[in-house]
């Protein structure tokens, strides 16, 4: 639920990076934070546990300029991927406008990707939202691992496992190198903001 402030002519849009633990969600935001430093007025906020895992969320506010005379503030969040943190994942999803699903391309993570997507669907349902109706982008992350000889899932397999029914736009990416991190973000913002335009007429 994007929030429009008619007085300040400002819109706040919430985009959440979802996916299995250690898939690269935080790494996406860290890259964006470095790459677009000029547009980011405040520090990235992260709530971590001991040992560098996301406990609650990461948060990165990001200005993308104006649409129809309104300044657009994009708020990027990640959720904690670990299974035991579902309660906090649900809190972060509250009021979400657009989602990036960061899947881990490693062979070993195949089941975890599928389970995390199922968990996303269920959590959205608890807010009466349908995964088929929300702006969603798929990111197949860690493609660089194949260069190191680590077995990864083919894009076809990932598409079949995760995206055969959703048919969301998808990107092969390497968050650690920054490959397609910006493209993923731009796509989800574009999808999310399209529905805003009408509202701002």
């Amino acid at each position: 639920m994007a929030l429009i402030n008619p007085k300040k002519r400002e819109v706040q849009v919430k985009i959440v990076y979802y996916g299995p633990g250690r898939g690269g969600k935080t790494t996406n935001l860290e890259y964006i934070n470095r790459k677009f430093k000029k547009r980011i007025l405040n520090e990235m906020v992260t709530v971590k546990t001991y040992g560098d895992r996301t406990l609650f969320f990461d948060f990165l506010p990001f200005d993308i300029g104006e649409i129809k005379g309104h300044s657009i503030k994009i708020q990027l969040y990640t959720v904690p991927g670990q299974v035991k943190y579902n309660a906090t994942r649900r809190l972060v999803l509250r009021g979400v406008d657009g989602i990036v699903f960061v899947a881990d391309s490693m062979d070993l993570r195949r089941e975890m990707n599928i389970r995390s997507l199922q968990n996303l669907k269920e959590n959205l349902e608890s807010f009466n939202k349908n995964i088929f109706n929300i702006p969603l982008v798929m990111q197949y992350n860690k493609r660089d691992l194949s260069d190191e000889g680590i077995p990864i899932l083919s894009v076809e397999t990932l598409e079949k496992d995760l995206n055969s029914r959703l048919k969301a736009p998808c990107f092969s990416a390497s968050a650690i190198r920054g490959d397609n991190v910006a493209a993923t973000m731009k796509k989800v913002i574009a999808l999310t903001v399209t529905s805003l335009r009408k509202k701002l007429e």
Binding site: E43, V45, F56, F59, K73, A87, R94
Partner: peptide, 16 residues
Amino acid sequence: HDVFSLAALAAGNYGA
């Protein structure tokens, strides 16, 4: 203060 970060954290904190 950085009000946007404060609000994000406050929402999470309140929910928790």
